[in-house]
Design a protein around this nucleic acid. Structure first.
Length: 445
RNA sequence: CGGAGCGUAGCGCAGCCUGGUAGCGCACCUGCUUCGGGAGCAGGGGGUCGGAGGUUCGAAUCCUCUCGCUCCGACCA
């Protein structure tokens, strides 16, 4: 993309309403525009990142054997009366009536609807296990939206629902989700730690939240210093192998890691003192086994091999996709702007022409731009009539992980400069070498 | 929902207290010079001062109502 042909309304000054860094940078980098309290338009570059995150989530869910579908944003109140949640859910649920005076709501979650789909079409244990998920906009009428997309009212969420015959099967679905989530976050360049969460009135310990460590996180977290070092890496996982999946879950949940809601001081103090960490975290996902909470009142049953009808065992598993962008920026930025991890960057590389209009630099940039695109890469070419400083500042702000700088000085020796946004280190090389290096960096991402 | 603020040009702000018909910086347009970290000079365009009502000869400014947004707290992915 050529910057002169793109729509990237960057702001030089900080918008007054933005308090935290991710919100400020998203506004300044022209990623979002607020349309009402907690409701945002996604401008092209923000939309690009959002779609990229969606894509990663889809790929990892499908890899785990989960099946995508799409449920509507609007729901009928009737379903929610069946589960009893129409009255239980507070004013955060946006309710309204259509022209026929039917009670409707903008879905804050989809347990009732997926259970309805399930009971309409699944009759036998032979159809299990089944995990259906979608990535859809939700609405929760927060009293006080803030922090940009981190706590908006409208938000994009992946929510998946598992259906199994037995509790053991359902717990395998739970574990499968945990591993798929770990892989998802890792691909995005995030360290998200599964922490035992508050399970509420249902009890048990079968719920975990995934927290990204960040100073601005909303939750206080207590953890063993060894936990953030755990990595899935490039190991392959057979999602149907219960023992293997369970072993990975054990590996990631055995060491102490909890939020303030479930913190246990005595257990925490058993960690060697030098490894006790207290910090803050941003919740970017949660997995939950809840058994027959919805299947029973809503009559979602399956026939067992014995011919009996039993309510199906369920779990729900969510990733806050739009919120993840905020978390990514909170975890990856400096005083100049965003620093995108390679896995989620809106453009692979920024191409800066230091002397627009100069025959030699223009030609070199055009050649580089074409060569990068020919390799299947997505470069952003800053072809504006701007001075060097302005171009660098824009690149630093929008945070592309790599920058190729083309100026008359280097070009006199046939060289361009490749700069890492994260380390700030630059290296001079030929244009061909720069393209090769970028290709190498993105191989396998 | 309790408490506190703020709405003046695309963005950031001043003007309001003490009424006299709107200003600064950035951005934008034109020209010249500049050109490796948000350039300089000159010229130019852009605002029903959130909205409605009231007081007044006269309201961005005072009063009332209303809408929107932000912050602290409680709540929450």
């Amino acid at each position: 993309m050529r910057l002169t042909r793109y729509f990237l309304p960057v702001l030089k000054e900080n918008p007054a309403e933005a308090q935290i860094v991710s919100h400020r940078y998203m506004l300044r980098a022209g990623m979002i525009k607020q349309q009402a309290a907690g409701i945002y338009s996604w401008l092209p570059m923000g939309f690009k990142v959002l779609k990229r995150l969606e894509q990663i989530v889809h790929e990892e869910q499908i890899r785990a054997g989960h099946i995508p579908l799409l449920m509507p944003t609007l729901q009928s109140a009737d379903l929610w009366r069946e589960s009893g949640r129409y009255d239980a859910y507070g004013p955060e649920m946006l309710r309204f009536k259509d022209r026929h005076d039917r009670e409707m709501l903008y879905g804050p979650t989809n347990e009732e609807m997926i259970t309805d789909i399930f009971r309409s079409h699944v009759e036998s244990y032979k159809s299990l296990p089944l995990t259906l998920y979608h990535i859809q906009w939700k609405f929760r009428d927060e009293v006080r939206p803030r922090f940009g997309v981190m706590r908006g009212r409208e938000f994009l969420m992946k929510d998946g629902y598992s259906f199994d015959l037995t509790k053991e099967d359902a717990l395998h679905a739970y574990n499968r989700h945990m591993v798929s989530y770990l892989r998802t976050y890792e691909r995005m360049g995030l360290t998200a730690i599964p922490m035992r969460a508050d399970s509420g009135p249902i009890g048990g310990d079968n719920t975990h939240e995934f927290l990204v460590l960040a100073k601005t996180g909303e939750s206080e977290v207590f953890y063993d210093a060894k936990v953030p070092e755990l990595k899935l890496g490039d190991r392959t996982v057979d999602y149907d192998n219960r023992d293997e999946v369970a072993a990975i879950c054990k590996e990631f949940t055995t060491l102490y890691a909890r939020t303030d809601e479930t913190h246990d001081e005595a257990l925490f103090n058993q960690i060697p003192e030098e490894r006790r960490c207290i910090g803050r975290g941003i919740e970017v996902g949660q997995i939950f086994y809840f058994g027959t909470k919805y299947s029973e009142p809503m009559g979602a049953t399956v026939t067992t091999p014995d011919g009996a009808k039993v309510p199906v065992e369920m779990g729900s598993h969510g990733i806050g996709v739009s919120r993840l962008i905020g978390a990514l920026i909170e975890a990856n930025h400096d005083e100049k702007g965003i620093i995108w991890p390679e896995g989620v960057t809106p453009f692979h590389v920024g191409l800066v022409n230091l002397k627009q209009g100069d025959v030699a630099t223009d030609a070199a940039c055009e050649a580089l731009y074409a060569a990068l695109k020919a390799k299947g890469l997505d470069p952003l070419y800053d072809d504006r009539e701007e001075r060097a400083g302005a171009k660098f500042a824009t690149m630093d702000l929008i945070g592309l992980p790599w920058r190729i700088t083309v100026g008359p000085r280097g070009l006199a020796n046939g060289l361009v400069e490749l700069t890492s946004r994260r380390s700030g280190e630059s290296e001079e090389m030929t244009p061909e070498a720069a393209v090769a290096k970028i290709v190498e960096i993105y191989a396998g991402i």
